[in-house]
């Protein structure tokens, strides 16, 4: 996932805490292997290699992850799509040499991006309909790892903790009796500052921002949040923070709302009873969903 995970635990017994965090990190590492397409042996790699040809049998866990991802795509009307892989690869955000792909190449590969062409068949078989299609779990893997990591901590008797997976976090319990966890939202223009803060209340918080991964070429900033419909950078926003019960859901929906833009995005958040959110537009305007009013505190001047 290329991400660092950070666990903060408040617990009376240090040895017990250490054991629990060890187990949580083991789980996160396992999910890294499960969802990664770096390894030539991973299930995702096998599904991708067989695109347009065979249905490939996968583990139940991965099958469920795919099912959930497709449900998210349906809910978000295609603004979130794990088949973005084919286009995501063109942008090579991981490489040192950054190039802007040719428009013709993007247009040629765009038909490969469509979650409707992930076919979930009997006995946990998965088939990608078109050769060249590629699943990329980038927008959900971190969130899923956070959820599972928290489950493991709970199993090992940890009641008070924050698990932060580089932009996706989940908190349980409180910092100390009567003192809630304080969660900051990074300022998109001044990344050393927080723009807002809120209490962590047994929920997940995820942020998608244009400042997280980007490169500048010929004076234009190219960030990593791509619109599955155009294959180009989603426009109009600086960051989207989503609060939900599950980090995986918050993670996916932060990406989706970023792609939707300010107006559609906030309309979507309001239509989903299990979501709250904050949108920061390109011109610095902050739009807060009704359930967060009074819960979130802004730290800048305007």
């Amino acid at each position: 996932m290329g991400t660092l995970f950070d666990i903060t635990v408040s617990h009376p017994d240090v040895e017990e805490a250490r054991k629990a965090t060890d187990k949580a990190f083991d789980e996160i590492q396992r999910i890294e292997w499960l969802t990664s397409n770096f390894s030539s042996k991973s299930e995702i790699t096998k599904i991708n290699q067989n695109a347009g040809k065979l249905a490939y049998p996968v583990s139940e866990e991965l099958y469920i992850l795919l099912q959930k991802s497709i449900q998210y795509s349906q809910l978000a009307n295609g603004t979130f799509d794990i088949t973005i892989g084919a286009i995501q690869d063109l942008w090579k955000f991981e490489n040192e040499i950054r190039t802007v792909p040719a428009t013709e190449t993007i247009i040629r590969l765009l038909p490969l991006v469509d979650f409707r062409n992930i076919l979930l068949e009997e006995n946990h078989h998965v088939r990608l309909k078109i050769e060249g299609m590629k699943i990329d779990f980038g927008a959900v893997a971190k969130g899923y790892a956070v959820d599972r990591g928290i489950d493991v901590l709970k199993k090992y008797n940890i009641d008070n903790a924050i698990l932060n997976g580089g932009g996706d976090l989940k908190s349980i319990g409180e910092k100390s009796p009567g003192v809630p966890w304080k969660i900051g939202v990074r300022h998109p223009c001044k990344p050393s500052d927080v723009i807002a803060s809120l209490d962590g209340k047994n929920n997940a918080i995820a942020t998608s921002g244009d400042y997280q991964k980007y490169f500048v070429k010929d004076g234009i900033r190219y960030h990593h949040i791509l619109n599955p419909v155009t294959g180009m950078q989603a426009q109009g926003l600086q960051s989207v923070t989503i609060i939900a019960k599950e980090a995986m859901f918050a993670d996916a929906m932060a990406t989706a709302v970023f792609v939707m833009g300010a107006e559609q995005g906030m309309k979507f958040v309001k239509s989903q009873s299990q979501l709250e959110g904050v949108i920061i537009t390109a011109d610095g305007k902050k739009i807060v969903s009704s359930g967060l009013k009074g819960e979130i505190e802004f730290h800048d001047d305007n």
Binding site: L4, I7, P12, F25, E32, F38
Partner: peptide, 23 residues
């Protein structure tokens, strides 16, 4: 110093890549 029974805060960091698990 950490004494047993004290309420302590532990922050642990993990770098996830394909190789191993540190904290």
């Amino acid at each position: 110093t950490i004494t047993k029974g004290d309420k302590i805060l532990i922050a642990i960091v993990l770098a996830v890549n394909l190789l191993s698990i540190p904290f």
